[in-house]
Amino acid sequence: MSISRRTLLKLVGLTALGVTAEKYVSVHAGSTSAKLVAKAIGAGKRLAGTKPAQKVRLAMVVDLRKCVSEQGCTKCIDACNKAHNIPDFGESKDEIKWIWKEPYQDAFLDQENFYMKDEFKNKKVPVFCNSCDNPPCVEVCPTQATFKRDDGIVMIDWHRCIGCRYCMAACPYGSRSFNWRDPRPFIKDINPDFPTRMKGVVEKCTWCDERVSQGLSPICVDVCPGKALVFGNLNDPGSEVRQLLKDNFSIRRKPGLGTSPEIYYLV
């Protein structure tokens, strides 16, 4: 035998290291694999201008004075559930939620407001993923499956998520859901334009990144009958969100944690 078992094992180990290193480089050097593919087929450059312009920080303003969720309006939730193939398991253990309503006092646990009007005390606050500017979920994710886009949207790469659920432990807003079982049989009417998920991955509201990439607003914003939801670029001084924040007093959920949530509630 010219090559000993040990030497062979060492070689295999080194090759494995090399492969890992190549993968690492390909991810961190701005998709080398993209360049490789482009080179292989001799493809030209990508279209200019498809990348979101710099200095965009998307944000959402929820005007609770206009929101009529306490009257049973669930238009935003229904539209979202339908657009994103969110299953209905009929029980809370496996539940998946992107947008849902919480009583005012629970959504703003650290705001102790007494002697409010009943109307406000019973207010149901729509809650979403806050797409934090300093997202703890992104910080803890061991595979970068959850990440922040240039425009501020916090996303999940469902192809990469290993289902460790560290992000769920890290999210201070309880915004994340896990697919405890195969969701497909529990989706009444599948929207073919949006993927369903598989068991074992985490999901959450992504501010309709698929619509935002096409220059549209999130679907909840579009369907809100009272125009209570406003979506826009916080870095644009002329945007509607900036105007609203200038003219009104706004609160955010748990700002003291330093996560910088990007959903502002007007009360």
Binding site: T20, K23, Y24, V27, T143, I162, G163, Y166, V201
Partner: peptide, 29 residues
């Protein structure tokens, strides 16, 4: 115990393929 807790155990190697120093789980591995 970590392995049986994973939702997508076949993707375990993603921990090595996408090393993420800002995640404590990476350092634990």
């Amino acid at each position: 115990f970590v392995f049986v807790d994973l939702g997508q155990p076949f993707r375990l190697l993603n921990l090595m393929l996408y090393p993420t120093p800002h995640s404590l789980l990476f350092w634990d591995v």
